[in-house]
Design a protein around this nucleic acid. Structure first.
Lengths: 333, 333
DNA sequence: TTTATTTACGAAACCGGTTTCGCTGGAATA
DNA sequence: TATTCCAGCGAAACCGGTTTCGTAAATAAA
């Protein structure tokens, strides 16, 4: 099958390729009549412009990338929908790239973006990412980066996050109010902003009541996490409350409780940062800190487009904090 | 920031651009010494080739697309991981495009692909898709298409599916075995292959026992589905068993049961096609037909790459059926 | 020594749009 | 009538790689 291109249209209409191009782009140089003829033929022949040709010449790809650890997470999948809704509206395409929580993957992906494959990047850093050299390098090549949810300190980029500190505080205060005295915090990584901020909120709430900290770092392996949580709940003086900082940790806690015959919420109360739609149907129903995933996605995309369209080079003043909501359910009541 | 390109490398080394290009592509025409010098400088200057330039010239983008209804679904997110694992290994990039179960979106996306943006397409059709003209058109332009999970009849493309008929049969037989006599099937769309095949299995199992059919088509709106399921469970002679053909319907059933004070599994038993990791922690735990999502993704990607790399134009003989597993849990026992 | 072949590289066309600049004929202005 | 202006269009450069073809020098074969 022959691809029909601008040259084919030009021949058919006895016009030059430049005229066709201008007509398609609605240039003022071309008469309405000619434009009309061109548009008509293009529609008739089902012409689709080659995006690579335009990108090559124009130095603009109209692609933006979403770089996230994984897609099998309700926060990210909802955020993707938010991003897409904004991007599609402005004629941008969205490239989803998964780091699988791996720093090398993340590096390789960003390195590739230096080629101009995308005009801008929305990212939530992997849990392994400790330094931001690869991100700085990309920004130096004038590819704007906007963090959403998981930001990296020390990198001068806009960040759209939720009120992690306050949410951590609120969730902990809620557990304390429900009678917990020995609350463990399940973090993800000592580098991750969300983990640290949520933990800081947890600490503040605990400190205010003079309660002791207990912090456990989980990995990205479900098996390891299961072991970790099981050990935590098996030890003498096991926690009577758990604040889990990411969604996937909920499963481990439910499983461990079931295996150890601990009842939730009687023996252990749980609050988890999560956007799971079926949190209410779990047994017991799960108390969640629910993030505004869709809104964060929309805001992040809008911010990136602002950076792309205006030469709004300065990312300062673009940061945004959208509050999460503590939804009290059976696991903590 | 100046992008460094082949020309820059050429100038630096006093070589021609063609020599650089060949050296980078490890051509036999270039001496080992020159190759070495080129590679070294490229690494030093952090050279990243412009993908648009190569795609334009080579008529190959090394991009493949995943066209799916949505990403907030555990089957699709797991399948994506399977696809990605194969594609990345072969040096392909993955573009994820969401149709939101909308036919017009799907059409527009495929139309765009006629431009050569991607070399091949993996797709699960939207529930609204009744005819395959847009898919045929793409195939006519020599862009191979492989269906996974949701295939469309009448389109000559490879299809990687699970044993929908048998799974529907098994799930229904299981419900009958558990004492259900009045089992409703919740479908998605009368066009969708998975819905139809699963329903056919349901019908066969019901017929064998002389039990009456009851089939309800749900939409993609959670609110509408909630109303539908509530009405179904409120009516006189309400079903004592439900077979839900897609994951998101589970939520509606749980919710409706809770609101109507119906207890699962005593009043209503439920089996749902789902890949939810936390199915076991629901209340009651959810009996699922779990699809081999990751494997299906891998198989689909492998099939597409086969079509891309060899000129294996004929898609017949590439079809694959990977069985699902019925996992019996509390909602049906 | 002459001819054939191989090695290693460069010049230039090419992919398909975009954009700059130049040209022409007719209308407007002086 | 002479000059200016402008609408409308075309030729060609350009984006950054890839590939074909040509060629000079080195080597092998005759």
């Amino acid at each position: 099958m022959k691809q029909i291109n601008i040259k084919a249209l030009a021949q058919e209409l006895n016009l030059s390729v430049s005229t066709i191009s201008k007509a398609l782009r609605d240039s003022y140089e071309i008469s309405d009549e000619t434009k009309h003829r061109v548009l008509e033929l293009a529609a008739k022949l089902n012409y689709t412009p080659n995006p690579y040709a335009s990108s090559l010449r124009g130095k603009k790809s109209r692609n933006i990338a979403i770089v996230i650890p994984e897609v099998a997470d309700s926060f990210f999948s909802q955020a993707i929908n938010g991003i897409e809704s904004v991007a599609k509206g402005k004629g941008y395409h969205v490239l989803i790239c998964l780091t699988h929580e791996n720093y090398e993957h993340e590096q390789a992906i960003l390195k590739e973006f230096q080629s101009g494959r995308v005009d801008g990047v929305l990212m939530s850093v992997s849990s392994e990412t400790a330094s931001g050299g690869h991100i700085q390098e990309l920004i130096a090549k004038e590819v704007p980066v906007v963090f959403f949810d998981r930001a990296l300190n020390g990198v001068a980029a806009a960040r759209i996050v939720t009120d992690d500190f306050q949410s951590g505080y609120n969730a902990t205060a809620h557990l304390i109010e429900q009678g917990c005295r020995n609350i463990a915090f399940l973090g993800v990584s000592s580098q991750l902003s969300i983990s640290n901020d949520r933990m800081a909120g947890y600490r503040k709430a605990m400190e205010e009541k003079g309660l002791p900290f207990r912090e456990v770092y989980c990995s990205s392996s479900p098996e390891d996490n299961h072991t970790l949580v099981t050990d935590l709940l098996r030890q003498h003086g096991r926690p009577d409350g758990i604040l889990a900082s990411v969604e996937k940790l909920a499963t481990s806690v439910y499983q461990a409780c079931a295996e150890l015959q601990l009842s939730m919420p009687a023996d252990v109360k749980l609050v988890c940062f999560s956007n799971l739609g079926i949190a209410a149907m779990l047994y017991p129903s799960l108390t969640t800190v629910t993030q505004p995933a869709f809104e964060m996605g929309k805001a992040a995309a809008a911010t990136l487009l602002k950076l792309l369209e205006k030469k709004h080079t300065d990312p300062s003043g673009l940061d945004m904090v959208i509050p999460s909501e503590l939804i009290r359910r059976g696991s903590s009541l």
